[in-house]
Each structure stands twice: as C-alpha cells, then as structure tokens.
Design a protein around this nucleic acid. Sequence first.
DNA 1: ATACTTTTTGCAACCGGTTGCGGTATTCGA
DNA 2: TCGAATACCGCAACCGGTTGCAAAAAGTAT
Lengths: 323, 323
Amino acid sequence: MAVTIRDVAEASGVHVSTVSRAFSAPHLVNPATRTRVLAIAEDLGYRPNRAARALTTGRTHNIGLIVADIANPFFPPLIKAAQAQARLRDYHVFVADTDEDPQVEEELIQTLTKQVDGVLLCSPRLTNRTIERLREEVPFVVVNRRVKGMPTVLMDVGRGVRLAVEHLTGLGHRRLALVTGPSGSWTSKEMQSAAAAMSEADVTFLGPNPPTELGGLAAVTDVIASGATGVLAYNDLVAIGLMEGLAERGIAVPGDISVIGVDDIVPGRLSRPKLTTIAMPTAAAGRIAVDMLLQSVDSDSTGGVTVLETSLIVRESTGETHS
Amino acid sequence: MAVTIRDVAEASGVHVSTVSRAFSAPHLVNPATRTRVLAIAEDLGYRPNRAARALTTGRTHNIGLIVADIANPFFPPLIKAAQAQARLRDYHVFVADTDEDPQVEEELIQTLTKQVDGVLLCSPRLTNRTIERLREEVPFVVVNRRVKGMPTVLMDVGRGVRLAVEHLTGLGHRRLALVTGPSGSWTSKEMQSAAAAMSEADVTFLGPNPPTELGGLAAVTDVIASGATGVLAYNDLVAIGLMEGLAERGIAVPGDISVIGVDDIVPGRLSRPKLTTIAMPTAAAGRIAVDMLLQSVDSDSTGGVTVLETSLIVRESTGETHS
DNA sequence: ATACTTTTTGCAACCGGTTGCGGTATTCGA
DNA sequence: TCGAATACCGCAACCGGTTGCAAAAAGTAT
C-alpha cells in the first residue's frame, strides 16, 4: 500500500541502506546519488515510517504531555506552546487528560512510556514516590511541582504573591485574606508561605477550596467573616466566583473589597470588573519544559530546576480601601 | 534495557509466539500456560511495545487530532472528550495546533499519517481539494465543516440561530444584526443562511470579522450604525468584545441592545452581564467523532454525516426592547 | 489399537527501517 | 607506479512484535 524505503531503493537502483543513509546520514552517501534518491523518493511520495525507525533507534520522536484537565483554561496555552516547540524539534506530542485522577495518571504514563522518549508532567497529582519509581522507565520533566532531583519548571508564584501584597498594602489595605487551593497543590503551599512571610499586613488563610469558580463562590462567607478588605485567590476562576458571590450580596469590587487572582487566564481578562492578577508564564513554561525534556532525553543529564518569573497585572478589581 | 517478549518467553519456557498469542489471541493458547505466561509477564513488568506491534499489524492505536488553535476556548472541551473516548477504546491521541495556517495543517497531517490510524480534523482551513487528496493516505473525520462524501460531525447552528432569532423577536426586537466570522468559516455561512431565512425580523449582516474579542470590539460602530437592537455574534468571544465596546460608549446590555453569542464557552458564562448564547455540543462532537473515526478505520465504511443539536441558553444579555 | 480431529505450540518469515562490517572504486602521497 | 587512505555502497543482522504453516500433543470415534 504505502511506499516504503524498498520501493525507493528499487526505483533508484540502489540498496535500501543507501536510501536510508540518504535520509539519516547524508555525509555517508555520494551527493549525486543522494539527490537522485531524494528526488525519486519525493516523486513516489515516500515518507519514512517513524514507528519503524523508532524500533531500531530507540527514539520515537514523540513526547507525552499529561495534564489534570485540558479544559482548565490554565493549560491550553501551555499545551499549545509545548506542542509548537516540539514541532520545531521534529517531535510530536501525545496529550492526555487525567481528570484529576492519580490512578488514571499512572496508567497513562505506563501505556505511554513505550511510545515516547519522555513525558511532561504538569501539576501532577501523583505522590513523589510514585513519580520517582516511574522515572526509571522514562525521562520526565515536571512542571509546577518540586520533586527531588528531577528536572523541573517552576513558576515563582511567591514573587507574585509578594508583589500582590505590596500592591494591596500600598493601597492602604491592612487586613488581607488568602483563599487557598487544593491541599495537595504545590502552588497553594508556595502562596501560603510567601504570604505568611510578609509582615506589612495581617493575612488570614481560608480554605482549602476546589480550584474553580464554585470554590470561589463557596468562600464568600468566610471572606466576609474574616473582615479582610483585600483578597488573594488561588486562581482566576476562584477569584471570579468570589466576585460573583460578592456582587450577589451587594458588596462592591473594588469599592469594598479588592480581589486578586492568579494565572491571567482569558476569562479573567474579560470579567467585569477586569481582574487584577498574577500572570503565570505558561507558554514559556511549556516551551522550556519541552527543551529541558529533549535535552535530558539525549544527554542523560541530571536536569536542573528552572524558575520562571511571574508578574502582577493590575486591572480593575483592586483599589484603595476606605475602611 | 526494557523487558521484551523474548525475556518473557525465556522466563516461562515457551516460544515468543506463544507469549504473543497469550496477549493478542488468548483462545489459541492453553488456559494454563496462558495464565502462567501472563503472571510471569506481570512479574517482569512487561509491556508490549505498541510501535513494534504497529509495524506488523498496521494498526498504531493512535489517532491524530488537529485543531486551529488549542488556546481557543472552543476546542479544549472537544479535545478532552475526544481524548477520553479514545482512551476508552485503547487509543492514544496526538494533538496538534496549526496556528490557523493551512500550510502547517497539511504538513502536520503528512508527518502524522504514518503514526496514526486516522485523524480528526476540526474546523479545517484546508481546501476541500486538499482534504480529498490527503484522504487517500489516511482516514479522516471532519468536524465542523462539510466535505463531500467524507465522514463528518456537524453542529446544527442553523437551529440555534432560529431559536435565537425567535427569542429576540419574542422580546419585541425587529431590527437585528449578525456579526459574521471569517469568510472561510462553514459555521458563519450556516448562520447567515439560517438568519436570512427568517421572515419575522429584518437582519443586516456585518463583517466578516476575526473570531475574537477584538473582532467584536471592531464591530461596535457598525452595529450601532445598523440601528439593530438585537445582535447575534459569530461566537462568544466576539460577543464579549462587542459588549465591552458597547459598555465603553455607555450603551446598556441588555437595556439598549441585546447580545447573543455562540459556543457557550467558559468566559461567556462568567461575563457581566452573563451571556445568552447558542450552546455547541463540543464534548459530544469529540466523543462521536472519535467513534466514527475508529469505525471507519476498521470497517472501511463510507461514513455518514452526524448532525448534533444546538440549543439556546438564555442568560442576562438579552431582554425586551424599548424602542 | 487405529485413524482422524482438534488443540496447543514451535518455526520462521515478515513489518520498515538502521547500522556495523566488509568490499570496491577512487583518490592521494611518495 | 604502487600501496594506503578514503569515499561510497551493499550485505545481512537486528529492533520487538505478529502470524501462516506445520508439527506435536491430546482427545474422539470406531
């Protein structure tokens, strides 16, 4: 059916090995025959079969990308960037969604290992132990979580949190609240420790909460009870839910309470009032994670930790306090 | 390095072919030896190499999923559903982003064909001719576009548009506007013809516009000039941009002008006012498209056309007109 | 016990490439 | 002019499975 390397060999009167080399080791074949072979291959519409190649070389030229929830607006820019970068390096990417289920996550990794040269694990829900065990079977790069001795891409939310707190205190806020995320979340822990280290303000921790709009909605009463005039939410969705809930009770944002989110996802940019937020460099993270992965694939390096800067984007949901 | 079928064969004292059959043709091997082999395989941590298997069977158990823009909120639910459905059928999915570039799209398909059993083309930008040519090389299912004689999943926006127009006319609107999308878009054409067929109202067509928030923003002056009190936008992003622009000019939604979007993406659910929209069954489309693809993969069927229903979700951006 | 099925297993070729090794042909140095 | 280095190419084994064919084993009928 499909045209193989043997067809090309036959058509050009050379051995298959010569055709093979014409593609993957050009310096080992006479320029003249090489161009001839290439022309004939082009003519016949020959495309090397990557699966067959993988069998001998041990390189599939595929990578796996595992995320908890594709539909979470935080991930698509990362996936997009990772995919584009992979393509640049002549790699294809399997994308898999675990539905936040560690079991599924592990299974996925297991079945994927033989088909990929490495996998990108984004905000994994697996235990460190499991990750370390799986690591024996395939190279990893972990995004958004710190795992001992493993190549990692981190986003420095701590800095974002500090900027956010400074922003709020600069506007006169003294009593702040932090709506935390899932208890297993590395980001959430980072946010807490960064906030706790700030002496300028008095911050109370609320949660844990699901990282969704509903989670924000659910946190409204606690926020009000805390007496805080400035709130930092685990992410933009939570922040939006929160603003939703505050609006329902007639509490003005930013008039009465200022709200800051995290991630800078599209919905936050479109909300009313527009959300002040800590921007996460997700696209850069995807790009860099791919490069780190490919590097660790063909150099067996131990792999370091890359920390990406975050920044505060001030929009309309924060303002001076009048209390 | 990795444990192969030969390791298992040796460890269990049988020939590799027996091991192979123990996995992929159970009825051809003695139940006793089968369980023994399976146990030993499990013990050794053996996982069949799908790439190797693909070489002989011609089935990679992978599918490709090509979209114009992963970051467009319309796609993630579709990708997620497709991926989940594929997993159910023991398939993995390559996701690729064409960045709206037909050239990239074609290249992607070319390099993917050898690695997949079929590909899902979502809102392709390629010409019909190209698609038909590519079809020779690999089975397709096309989503969101009609291509002659090819398995297709369509969402019936026409119905949604009719519901939307009825909704608006029911609220007293007589002058309507339709902000159209990219000129190549099948959906946009469908919307236009559906709207044109409605006799209850007088609808003017505006555009074409880019299918983004900016596109909506750009359409504001035209919308105002048209004198319409009810506007149907190409999609939710356009609708949001439109509302944004109207707000800037002090025009109330839905007080002065009612706005309806298409897609029911997350940002629309979170906008203020909440967007009335035509919901597209993207998840169902992803699921069904995968099933159709797998079916056409192993039955060589000609493949039909599946049309999915859309519905109108009334929220806060539409109301009675006072003009 | 014999002949005939049926079940279970082994053998070996094959899928589509890659690659170490060795053989020619050509070029280079002296 | 001749030996040696070099460039180019073919041979054949191999990657990790699958599968048609045939042999061996087990079961069945007579």
